[in-house]
Measured scan of single mutants.
Amino acid sequence: NQESVVAAVLIPINTALTVGMMTTRVVSPTGAPAEDIPRLISMQVNQVVPMGTTLMPDMVKGYAP
């Protein structure tokens, strides 16, 4: 099972992602793949992402898996 990126903390809208904001988990439906964490760092979210929420590609500005 592939791990997806999950918010480790509450991420406010327009916040640039840091490694400490993200964790990985096997979830369904799958979100952004765990191996993309290095690409996701410094990208901004376009909505509030509550802690424990799977990071879906459409939540991150300019990100395409």
Rank of each mutant, 00 (worst) to 15 (best):
M43C: 15
S42A: 12
E3G: 10
T53R: 11
I37D: 01
Q2M: 12
G20L: 12
P57D: 05
T53D: 10
T30I: 15
K61T: 15
T30R: 14
G52T: 03
V27E: 05
M59F: 06
D58V: 07
A8T: 11
G20W: 13
M22A: 08
V6N: 02
E3P: 11
M59Y: 01
I13Q: 12
N14G: 12
I37F: 01
N14A: 06
L10H: 15
L17H: 05
M51I: 09
S42W: 08
S28T: 14
D36G: 01
Q44P: 03
T23Y: 10
T30L: 15
N46E: 03
P65W: 06
Q44H: 15
P65N: 10
P29L: 03
Y63C: 00
N1W: 11
T54L: 03
A8C: 09
I13N: 13
T53N: 08
V6I: 14
I37M: 11
G31N: 03
S4E: 04
V5A: 02
V48F: 10
A34D: 01
A32Q: 04
T23C: 10
N1E: 15
V6H: 01
V6W: 06
I41K: 00
T18Y: 07
A7H: 01
M59N: 02
V45C: 05
M59D: 01
L10G: 03
E35D: 11
M56I: 06
N46A: 07
L10T: 15
M51D: 06
T24N: 04
N14H: 14
M59G: 02
I13T: 12
I11A: 01
P38V: 10
V27I: 05
A32R: 00
A32P: 03
K61I: 15
P50V: 09
N46I: 10
Q2F: 15
N46V: 10
V26Q: 12
A8P: 00
R25F: 08
T23E: 10
T54I: 06
V45M: 05
Q44E: 14
I13Y: 12
S42L: 08
V27Q: 03
L55N: 02
V9G: 01
D36F: 05
T18R: 10
G31Q: 01
V26D: 07
Q44G: 03
G62I: 05
